[in-house]
Design a protein around this nucleic acid. Structure first.
Lengths: 210, 210
DNA sequence: AAGAAACTATACATGGTGTGTAGTTTGCTC
DNA sequence: GAGCAAACTACACACCATGTATAGTTTCTT
């Protein structure tokens, strides 16, 4: 496995960005199946051999692409409303908007990573990390709901977090948007209804927390 | 592509069943990635070339395996309670039990088919058919809920069906059971709570249908 | 016993990833 | 601007997967 060091000059950085953008473009159009190294090479105008001067393997290209996309789409900005929300229920609404608005843009990459998983150790590692991050986010949200006494009966912090995590999975979002034609706004609204009714205790039925 | 005709003698049927069982076993243990034709051949004790005397391609093997499994697991019996239920809400409970109890047993095959999709036209066709079948089931259930006046406000027959369909997806079930360690019973109960609260209108808030 | 069906062994075409090597272009530095 | 190193290309190769062709062997049927 070739060792890739920090790029030095501008030419190298441009080539690298061109490769990542080409891969991203391919994932959005070709649907994830056609992402061979040859296709990325051809689309980016770099020789196939040249790809391996920037990315040690196909899996490593995915890892870097994932970070690249999160940077370009400004993940931090999409998560902000959830953190800044003044109540747990508002945070829950922000979660639904993030799931529908942001996660849906990751469909191509995530499907490709999932498909490469198992055969590719790098892809597997990326998958585990992303899942852990998302679950951690949901755990924080569920914890806040519990703190404010909003979590309804059968749910615990752990089970509510698991549920939220599974509902923000790219597979589910892909199913509803791509397959069933839901728009991002429809999905956000319906996810909001779903998690509010499922997780939030009715007004008369809450433990005495302010 | 080799043409496969109806098997004649018993030997052939036994070999065929041995291949399918070996493939199934591999999917349950190896997790779907290690399902190469070589692996199936080795596990079943048939030569690699021999596989192609029973299945025209890897994708066709999946198609036949899917039917084989649905037969062995008795799909019809698992769907029965849903159809026989005396009310739409009872049918919804039966749906949750079917999703958690039956769909979870398909995890291995479905993941493998999904992974083969795109490169394999047969796998793609199987996928579309299975999705259509499941969606049809959910559409019938949502229709019955509407008929009995139980569907709550933002939901229509179509959107409720889409939601149910996405919630019974093998990916979601796999996430919650394999990744988060939910048991089949826990999943069934929590799915029941989720869809009841989300879809069913509260008692005082229903149109006048008996 | 004979013939057909089922099966094996082996070889090959094709297409994918990843590496090795030699040669060429580009950019940086003095 | 000359020289040098980094970046890049072209080509070849090893390896592994699917699917096919062909010839020969076992097993079932009649």
């Amino acid at each position: 496995m070739t060792r890739i060091v920090e790029p030095r000059n501008r030419r190298s950085r441009d080539t690298r960005a061109a490769i990542l953008d080409a891969a991203w473009r391919l994932l959005q159009t070709e649907g994830g199946a056609g992402l061979s190294m040859s296709a990325v090479a051809q689309t980016s105008g770099v020789s196939r051999r040249g790809l391996y001067l920037h990315f040690a393997s196909r899996g490593q290209l995915f890892i870097d692409l994932f970070a690249h996309i999160n940077e370009r789409l400004d993940l931090h900005a999409s998560l902000d409303p959830m953190i800044e929300a003044s109540s747990a229920v508002d945070a829950l609404d922000a979660w639904a908007r993030h799931a529908a608005g942001y996660q849906s843009r990751l469909i191509g990459v995530v499907r490709a990573v999932d498909r490469a998983r198992g055969a590719d150790l790098d892809a597997e590692a990326l998958w585990q990390q992303a899942m852990a991050d998302w679950h951690h986010l949901c755990l924080a949200l569920a914890g806040r709901l519990a703190d404010e006494g909003m979590l309804s009966d059968p749910w615990t912090i752990a089970t509510a977090a698991d549920l939220l995590w599974s509902l923000m999975s790219v597979e589910l979002i892909d199913d509803l948007m791509t397959e069933q034609g839901w728009s991002s706004e429809e999905l956000a609204e319906r996810l909001r209804v779903l998690v509010r009714r499922t997780l939030i205790a009715p007004a008369g039925d809450r433990p005495d927390v302010p």
